[in-house]
Each structure stands twice: as structure tokens, then as C-alpha cells.
Write a protein that binds this DNA or RNA. Structure first.
Lengths: 340, 340
DNA sequence: CTGAAAGCGCTAACAT
DNA sequence: ATGTTAGCGCTTTCAG
């Protein structure tokens, strides 16, 4: 049988309370006993049982990671990376992550994730947009929460967001630097805060360069950000704006569709038109030409949000920190100096 | 305070033992009491605490998923998909998965994953090749194990493997069907069992078609299966075999490099040479032309291995099942009828 | 068919 | 500085 705290206590000639204190590095333990206990622990290869600990301390040692099914599957490389980041950081802090995928249409009466109901998580990370109903339901359990890549409904939650404004600005600035003046803008749902911020960055960069904003060069009403919609958006954009020499596509999936359209239309990239995306997904490298884009540090976002929730767990009075993770441009062959 | 089993017992006018029995669907409980208890459970919105259960029953409700760091990061879309599969199936069986990434160089004395030491998992899934030392160490804990995409050192473990032989055969057969007779073979480490099986499939298909096997058309000594090595392999293959009209690359990463080489060499795909890969990764679709390949059902592999371990957990006398998951060819533009 | 009671292995007052 | 002890919330004999 695997050893318990009693075995350690017996072996070290102390009470189980003392063993517990030693395990938790309590101060007022004489160096000698500490040594004796630690030796016993080592010799027995003792490890406290997670369940027993959990029951006694009301701490499970787990963090829930909640994401909607369609986010997780549709933008798979994105949220899985964030998940991995939380996982890496969790290990540093002796936590395990319980991945929990919820339906996108969670409604008021629906059952909360099992890990919450069973008191099997000490905190929750919410990744991407989730229905407000679940958040409202979750707060009732008054369990610490942190958000990543989604602006929470209340100011009082820690959150990690992408610096979308800067990303939009950098992308546009890069095109401007190459001499482009007629720059198209393509996005999926402009209602989404991230997209809106990228749009703002685009506008601001134009403004800084004294170039008038032209709504006719912006396609922002495609359903969702996928290749086929990028293709359609590029088609509509081009048919009405033969003068554009560059396109900023708000995400790479759409950018890939955009590239496809221009190829099909016999327009050369980057000779005739430059294209820049946003996200930096793996497929970008396989494209011909490889896609210039704004790179988002997904793993780091996960690490960061795990740190935030960890801070709250260590000290629940901590105020809710907001973190804006920086993005950076990745130069690849899909953009070039404008032709004169 | 959240309700406990006591609250339910009080409300239903029974003992806590009865509540427990009802929860576990024990038979010899009268329909009336069962009803009464269930109503109390519902009214109080009672959910048993995972920790308390774990302590009393010695079942954590968790499954460990062990994979080495370099596998997980290098072939990320592959093992993450398998992980997701286990996760999906785990939910059906009321388990949570604890993802545990171990260093690739785990040695005899090294610490086992924390979840094992703390008795926080009821079973373990091992994905991909791991050092034998950790397996030997793990068996001492006599905790149920199942393997996926790695042939375990002992016959006594359940395992889920890709039908690599069939995949190699299908790929080659497809090229043969298109009239190709001079088919190159490219692989990374031929020592790897999966690769060896694909090689066998290739040979067998040739044999079936009465085409003599030519070792000179096989490049099997590249270091590891990456794009750059595919490129180099294709170069060596082509320089010594100007007569080949098709190439079977044992994995898509290398196939992408192969395509790049032929493009650089001015050889048209698929007009001059057909290319088929193995894996079906996302990037395949972004290639020009899109890569014809053998598709591996990663999610299903995860589901399958979770089922296996679940079977063992339900009935520990169950014999160790072996599952060979089928693969299928995905027809895309990188292969064509041979020119006459 | 149901209840009483003894733990499971640990934490955290409270004593000493 | 260390020990005593009362739980934490559940499962599981064993009685009745």
C-alpha cells in the first residue's frame, strides 16, 4: 500500500499535524524535526493524496478551461495553443487544467460544467466569447474567473487580450511604408470587439498618413471568417475598386481566400497587389507566396491568463489586472513595394 | 453553502447511506424512496463532491494523458488531435483528462508525473513513443494503461495503432492505378515501426502489381521527417532516377518539401510527377496543387484509446484489446494519370 | 430495503 | 514548537 501521512509521522516520530506543517513549509518547526520528517518522506516516497487534500482544504488543485465547441474546433490551432499555454504555466504552479468544451448556445437553465458542480476546480479560465448566461450562472458560485481573448461583461475580472488596435495599425503602416495608398480592408464580423479594434488601427494608420478613409474599400459584412468568405469579399472588393494595390485581411483564414481570388483573377501577388493577414497560422508558410501577417503569441496568452488566475487564487483581494499582449508583424513574400 | 449528502438525506427523510445507494443506482432501493431522494437531489441541486468521492472510493475520476514534449510540440496538430479525441470520449464517460507532458529523456530515477504520485488518475493513456524507463516505473504503480500510436513493450496493454501497412499499400496502389510504374519512396527514420509498415505496404503493392522493387528509388535515411529533409530527399531521388513519374512520401511534412524541390527544379506537379503524402495535415489544402494524401483519423484514435482504457477500468479482467484504425486516401490534385 | 457507523487521508483550530 | 482532535463529504460493510 502506498504510504500515508500516518506512516510518515510514525517513521519520523512526530504527529501527523507536524508532518502536515512540514509539507506546507510552516515556519515554527524546528530545523531538526523538519529534517527528520523530510527524510521520512523521502524514504517512504510519500506523496499526499490529492483527494484527501481536496476534501480537507476545499481546494481541488484544478483550474477549469472553458471554451465553446465551435471556437475550439473552428479556430482550432488558436484556442488549442492558448490552452497549451495555460497548461505549461499550470504545471509551474502545481495545477492541472480541466478542459471543458461547452455548446455555443448555452442557455439560462443549462447544466454547468461538471467540474464546477462537483467542486473540482479552484478557478476558471474562459477563452473566447461565451454566452453571457453561463457567466452569470458561474458568478453565483463565486469562483475566481479570468478571461482570455474575450472582453468580459464586468470590469472586475482579470483579462488577457490581444493588442488588436496596434496589430491593425502595424499591418496598415507596413503597407503604407511600401508606398501603398489604396488599401482594402476585409473582415468577418465587424461586431466582434477584436475585429473592431483592428479596424480602428487601420483607420488610424491611414489618418496618420493623411490618407482619406474610404468605406467603399472596406468589406466587413461577411458571415464568419473563413476562406470562402475571404474569397467572396476579395471578389466584391476588387470588382468595385480596381485601383487598390494592397489588402489588409483581418485574419489569415480569410486572407488565404483573398489570395485565391486574386490568383484566379490572374492578378499577381505581390506584384499587382500586396496582401497582409492577421493571426499567423501554420498554413501561411505553405502558401505561394507565403503570407505576410501579424503574429499573435497564443502560447503566451495562455501563460499570461494562467498567471492572472493564479494571482487571484493566491490573494483573492488582488485587483483585476488587464493584460494587453503585444503582436508583431512577420514579413513574408505576399507584400511588396507598390508599382509606380 | 452548497448542499451535501446530509442535506439530501435530511430532506428526503432517509440516511446518507440510502442517498449514496440511490446515486449509484443500486437495485434494492424501493421505487418510492428512490423517487423521494431524487426529488430532494433535484430540489437542492445537489452534486456529490469529487474530492470526497475520490477519498472514499479511491477513484479520482481522472485519466492521465502522457506524451513527450517534443512529440507534442513537433507534431502538434497530430497529438493534440488525439488528445482532443480522448477528451471528447472522456466526457461521455464522466472522466476528465489530465494532460501531462514529459521530457523526452525521462530516465530511471526521474519523478513520475504528479498526477500519478498523488493518486489523482485512475488510468493512463500514453501517446506516441515514450522512454521505456517511464513505462517500467509506471507499471510498479499497477495503474491501468493504454497506448496510442506507439507499440507498447509488453503484449498486455490495450493499444490503438494506425493501419500503416494498408495506408502504404493504398497510396502505392493509387499511383499504380494511374499507370505509374516508377514510383519513388521517401521517408524519415525507417527504424520507426509506423514508417516500416508503410514501407512494407509500398513494397507489397508493387509486388502485387508485378513490379520489381528497386531500393535505388527509396530514400529512407533522412534524419527526421521535416520539410527540409523532404526537399533534400527529393533532390537525391531525382538526381539518381530521372525516370520516376511518382513519389510516395511517407508523411506530409516531407511531401511539402518534395513538392518544393520539384517546383524549384521546374518539374510540374502533377503533369510530370505525381506526389502522394501521408497524414492529411491542414497545410495540404493550401498547397498548389493541394496534396493528395492518406488521411489518418486522429480524433477517432483518441476516442478509441479512451474507450479501451474505460473498458479496463470498468472490468479489470478484460483482455488487452488491439485496435488498428483504418486510413483512407484523400484524392487531391497532386496526382494524375502518367504521361505516355 | 434501509440505517448506523467506521473509515478514506488530510487540514486546521486549538491545546499544551 | 509540536500534539490532539474534530471534521471535510462520501463509500461501504454490516446489522437489522
Amino acid at each position: 500500500m502506498t504510504p500515508t501521512i500516518k506512516d510518515v509521522a510514525k517513521k519520523a516520530n512526530v504527529s501527523i499535524a507536524t508532518v502536515s506543517l512540514v509539507i506546507h513549509n510552516h515556519e515554527r518547526i524546528s530545523p531538526e524535526t523538519r529534517l527528520r520528517v523530510n527524510r521520512a518522506i523521502k524514504e517512504l516516497d510519500y506523496h499526499p493524496s490529492r483527494s484527501a487534500r481536496g476534501l480537507a482544504s476545499k481546494k481541488s488543485g484544478n483550474i477549469g478551461f472553458i471554451v465553446t465547441e465551435d471556437h475550439f474546433l473552428r479556430s482550432e490551432p488558436f484556442y488549442t495553443r492558448i490552452f497549451l499555454g495555460t497548461e505549461f504555466e499550470a504545471r509551474q504552479n502545481e495545477y492541472y487544467i480541466l478542459l471543458t468544451i461547452i455548446p455555443a448556445d448555452f442557455k439560462k437553465g443549462d447544466k454547468l460544467p461538471r467540474c464546477v458542480l462537483e467542486h473540482n476546480v479552484d478557478g476558471i479560465i474562459i477563452a473566447g466569447k461565451v454566452p453571457e448566461d453561463i457567466i452569470n450562472h458561474l458568478v453565483e458560485y463565486d469562483i475566481p474567473m479570468a478571461f482570455v481573448d474575450y472582453y468580459p461583461p464586468s470590469e472586475n475580472f482579470p483579462v488577457v487580450l490581444i493588442d488588436n488596435f496596434s496589430g491593425g495599425h502595424q499591418a496598415t503602416q507596413h503597407l503604407l511604408n511600401l508606398g501603398h495608398k489604396n488599401i482594402g480592408f476585409i473582415a468577418g464580423d465587424i461586431q466582434h470587439p477584436s475585429i473592431r479594434d483592428r479596424f480602428q488601427g487601420y483607420k488610424m494608420a491611414l489618418e496618420d498618413a493623411n490618407i482619406e478613409f474610404d468605406a467603399g474599400k472596406c468589406i466587413t459584412d461577411e458571415d464568419y471568417p473563413a476562406r470562402e468568405n475571404g474569397y467572396n469579399a476579395a471578389k466584391r472588393l476588387w470588382e468595385n475598386n480596381k485601383d487598390i494595390t494592397a489588402v489588409f485581411s483581418c485574419n489569415d483564414a480569410m486572407a488565404i481566400g483573398v489570395m485565391q481570388y486574386f490568383k484566379d483573377a490572374g492578378i499577381k501577388i505581390p506584384e499587382d497587389v500586396s496582401i497582409i493577414g492577421f493571426d499567423d497560422v501554420e498554413a501561411d508558410l505553405s502558401l505561394d507566396p507565403p503570407l505576410c501577417t501579424i503574429s499573435v503569441p497564443k502560447i503566451e496568452m495562455g501563460i499570461e491568463v494562467m498567471r492572472l488566475i493564479n494571482d487571484v487564487l493566491k490573494d483573492r483581494t488582488k485587483s483585476a489586472k488587464k493584460v494587453l499582449v503585444p503582436v508583431e508583424i512577420v514579413h513574408r513574400k505576399s507584400t511588396a513595394q507598390v508599382k509606380h
